[in-house]
Amino acid sequence: MGDLDLRKLRYFVAVAEQLHFGRAAERLFIAQPVLSRQIRALEQELGVALFERDRRGTELTAAGEQLLTDARRLLDSAQAVQRRAVRAARGTGSLTVGFMPGLIVTAPVRALAARHPGLDIELVRTTWDDQIAVLHDGRVDIGFVRPPIDPTGLRVRELYTEPRVVLVSTGHRLAGKQAVEIADLADDVLLQSVEIVPEWRSVAGGSEQPPVPAYRSVEEKLEHVAAGRGIAFLPLSVATFYTRPDVTYIPVSDIADGQVSLAWAADRHGPLIDEFAALAAE
């Protein structure tokens, strides 16, 4: 078996994510016959079928599912290698720090800058969708993250916890309450993944929840809360940072506090990362 071709892997990931050769070809800006040939060539090189194709559509095989998981990580690593090489070529020290909404990271950033006056420190705001991806692909050297996360390939250091609250519209039946229990919210629609609020499973009682829309930001989620379309659980720091007159938050007495952690790629070693991690933990 020869070395894997990163270009073919990118083509495969596009098809695997779209499950449609035509849409994947459009996304890659190549002709569909070319894409089909590249996927067949990859299957021949690996000696396995990656897709099952029939009149109903295209589905991943078990081998395809496994390759998709591994290919994403491999492509992220390849991008990280390129970014680090470019930074090294610049000849100047730099550190890129990621942070989730509601988190204030000024203190450790200032402390590191004071110790290294010539250091270029960049800040990148992340989201639930990319807070880990930016670590794997090299866009961020070290990041403040909010679990749940997949720790594979990462070093993770817990920093502190903070209360989580539920956000409701000001017209909600519970608005104005000093505190609620999660059972009080059983009749509401949860506007986020149950993975983020595992306590919700006890409220849902095993019933199937409606699909959660793909919100790209906290602001989008709050628009839906304000419109009365559902509720959302957020860390207290996020709720207070995004204060608005048509949304209110209520403490929830029986859910666990949210964790804030520091994470960086396990294969990244360097004094700047170690130093910043120590400053963030102070």
Results as ranks from 00 to 15, higher is better:
53 R>W: 00
40 R>M: 02
118 G>Y: 01
67 L>Q: 02
102 G>A: 09
92 T>S: 07
107 A>N: 06
43 E>N: 04
116 H>T: 07
89 A>I: 02
114 A>N: 09
55 R>K: 12
49 A>R: 13
106 T>H: 11
67 L>D: 05
120 D>V: 13
60 L>A: 02
58 T>W: 12
69 T>E: 07
88 A>M: 08
116 H>Y: 15
43 E>M: 04
102 G>S: 08
51 F>H: 06
70 D>Q: 11
57 G>P: 04
111 A>K: 02
84 R>P: 02
101 P>H: 05
37 R>F: 09
120 D>N: 12
90 R>Y: 00
57 G>W: 10
117 P>C: 09
75 L>E: 13
95 L>K: 03
117 P>H: 08
66 Q>L: 14
84 R>T: 13
90 R>V: 00
90 R>P: 01
80 A>G: 09
80 A>I: 07
87 R>K: 14
86 V>R: 15
104 I>Y: 10
36 S>E: 12
72 R>S: 01
119 L>C: 06
36 S>L: 08
100 M>D: 07
54 D>W: 06
94 S>F: 14
58 T>E: 14
101 P>M: 06
103 L>R: 05
112 L>A: 08
60 L>V: 03
42 L>T: 07
101 P>C: 06
74 L>I: 11
58 T>Q: 11
89 A>N: 07
119 L>G: 02
43 E>P: 04
49 A>L: 08
52 E>L: 12
78 A>M: 07
105 V>T: 13
71 A>G: 04
79 Q>P: 00
105 V>D: 03
45 E>R: 03
89 A>D: 13
36 S>P: 01
120 D>K: 06
103 L>V: 15
106 T>D: 14
90 R>A: 09
111 A>R: 03
106 T>M: 10
79 Q>G: 13
41 A>S: 14
111 A>T: 11
114 A>L: 15
46 L>G: 01
113 A>L: 14
53 R>K: 15
42 L>M: 10
107 A>H: 11
114 A>I: 05
75 L>P: 02
103 L>P: 00
47 G>M: 09
91 G>F: 14
79 Q>H: 13
106 T>S: 13
63 A>M: 06
105 V>Y: 01
106 T>N: 10
97 V>P: 00
75 L>M: 13
58 T>N: 06
57 G>Q: 09
80 A>Y: 08
79 Q>W: 03
41 A>R: 05
83 R>N: 06
120 D>Y: 02
103 L>A: 10
80 A>N: 11
53 R>Y: 00
64 G>M: 08
86 V>Y: 14
52 E>N: 07
114 A>V: 10
103 L>C: 10
53 R>T: 14
42 L>S: 04
83 R>H: 11
106 T>L: 14
42 L>R: 03
103 L>Y: 13
117 P>E: 09
63 A>Y: 15
99 F>R: 04
91 G>H: 12
115 R>W: 00
79 Q>V: 00
55 R>E: 13
39 I>W: 03
70 D>I: 00
103 L>I: 15
71 A>N: 04
81 V>A: 15
53 R>E: 14
91 G>S: 12
114 A>C: 02
45 E>D: 15
113 A>M: 12
52 E>F: 03
82 Q>D: 15
50 L>M: 03
96 T>R: 09
52 E>H: 12
98 G>S: 09
72 R>V: 12
50 L>W: 03
49 A>I: 00
93 G>C: 02
